[in-house]
Design a protein around this nucleic acid. Sequence first.
DNA 1: CTGTTAGCGCGTTCAC
DNA 2: GTGAACGCGCTAACAG
Lengths: 340, 340
Amino acid sequence: MKQKITIKTIAKELGVSTSTVSKALKDSHEISKETKDKIQAYANLYNYKPNSLALQLRNQKTKVIGVILPKIVHHFFSTVIMGIEEGAIEKGYHIMVCFSNESYAKEVETLKVLSNGSVDGLIVSIANETLKNKDYKHFTDLVSEEIPLVLFDRVVDDILCDKVVVDDVGAGYKATKHLLDNGRKKIALITTPKHVNVGTLRRQGYEKALIEEYIKTNNNLIIEIDENLDVRKQIEPVFNLDIDGVFAVNEIYAANAIRIAKEKGLKVPEDFSVIGFTDGLISEYSSPSITTIAQHGFTMGKQSVELLIERIEKESEVYSPKKIVISSDLKLRESTKPSS
Amino acid sequence: MKQKITIKTIAKELGVSTSTVSKALKDSHEISKETKDKIQAYANLYNYKPNSLALQLRNQKTKVIGVILPKIVHHFFSTVIMGIEEGAIEKGYHIMVCFSNESYAKEVETLKVLSNGSVDGLIVSIANETLKNKDYKHFTDLVSEEIPLVLFDRVVDDILCDKVVVDDVGAGYKATKHLLDNGRKKIALITTPKHVNVGTLRRQGYEKALIEEYIKTNNNLIIEIDENLDVRKQIEPVFNLDIDGVFAVNEIYAANAIRIAKEKGLKVPEDFSVIGFTDGLISEYSSPSITTIAQHGFTMGKQSVELLIERIEKESEVYSPKKIVISSDLKLRESTKPSS
DNA sequence: CTGTTAGCGCGTTCAC
DNA sequence: GTGAACGCGCTAACAG
């Protein structure tokens, strides 16, 4: 890389001191108009840009927010990133994005590296494997170092920090209720393994809605998908049971369910209803398009940064972790009939 | 944030000098075993982590790569990010992700901020608006500052730097040829405005394939989508013309085409063929699923970082811009019949 | 008005 | 074997 121009070179070139240059560039009133003009002209000419590293070191802040996501191919996480980025830029921050790829080891490593001072704070959604291990030491360490941390979507109570989540129980309830309103009684649930708490919460909502209708939960109708195996093959068997609807906790599962239903000759939504979660492009372009619970990823992302930045900038105050709950909405499409 | 422990505090605490500590932590042979042990033990105990900012300032390198994308909701860009991140991590780098949101002004701004020394190099896919303006000064400035830059996918010749692209002409040809092999003769092209060069290149491939079959290009069959307007409404009219197939330059356009075709009562793929571009989830889950040209976003991302890092680390060598062309593959699905 | 000094945290000479 | 001094680029406090 070409030698960058610094305050020092300007100072030497113009025969003044570095601090004069520094002040002149900030239009300080301490400096005479003519020297200011001279210095500013020179700086412009040679396209001087202050070295942000030096500033960061000096100010002890980077204006960078670290973001660690499990993966990005879920449309949901893409929208969250957009939200985070937008909120960050608005407040003069930038984001550094990393992926844990659902791996515990990589999460630990990434957390360690980013907390070396390269970021002012972190926004994280916890990796599956970590959730499974229940080992949160890397997070609690962070908290005790008092590095601002916001957890979103996949959060756990063991970590004392700010959180942004959707009302998963309520959302699961809403989804199931909608199917019940469609006249469905035998509703399968396609969800994640138990250690992924969002799945568990949505399941609670599902059960709650059933109970209200005096329907007993049938565990055979609940499929916990292992993402390491073929998703479709795991869903298929439930279609051999007597079911008339499916609630899937994400859009991939929902899309698979629709495919299978159609192959089995079931007419959606006339004979069979499907509802998904996360309002992504798959739901929109599947046919029939899929009714879903919209998770508002963009909003979650934006709220997360705003919370984080507030924490970063007002570190003086007493720390009492906040939890923001984002409400979810039913996005009605073709895979279910409107509630009667 | 809690006061971080530094080399200095360790030195003071243990009654040695900072340089002794520095050397001890690097296991230098200049230091006696016992002082090393003492210092290392202390450092571990208090969880000492070298301040990366200070290191960056000292080494004049950040080990961070800036990435600027037009947007992320396209599955293609998500996969590119994954590829970039994986390649970066492997080489000990991190990525800083920003979005231009297709806006010229934001691209300029972001480029300026990131080139302040916060990154060692940049990977960019140019914003639509910039492509339209044809104003690349912010990029050429970067080049003349000798900041390593890799452009991918949406690139222009005016900028002298490394590039990674797919063989768009070849891909357009391949796609069109496949439809012709399906027995289609009246193929509509749904593409981007002319200023988006990838669209133009794919169009060239389309025309080339037609010419080979002695079919004259009919401009009425070529739709240039303005993304600011409703996509579907712009596609619909072409279905009133006499067509038997569609080549769409991305999967959203393809999914829309399929929907419209089905609504018009056309049977896909029996009566009508559709081929898309970018192998994303929509193509996979649409019904019928969509045959596409797979763009290999992950590979593009990974090759881009690798190229960039090579450039960053061997800056001594003479600079002769490289251009890597990634070949694309036909991904056969239900929306077309196998080539006969 | 302008310059000197010191320090952010670290590593690297070069003395001792 | 250990430490003092310097520099990375910048700014704030203090002198002049």
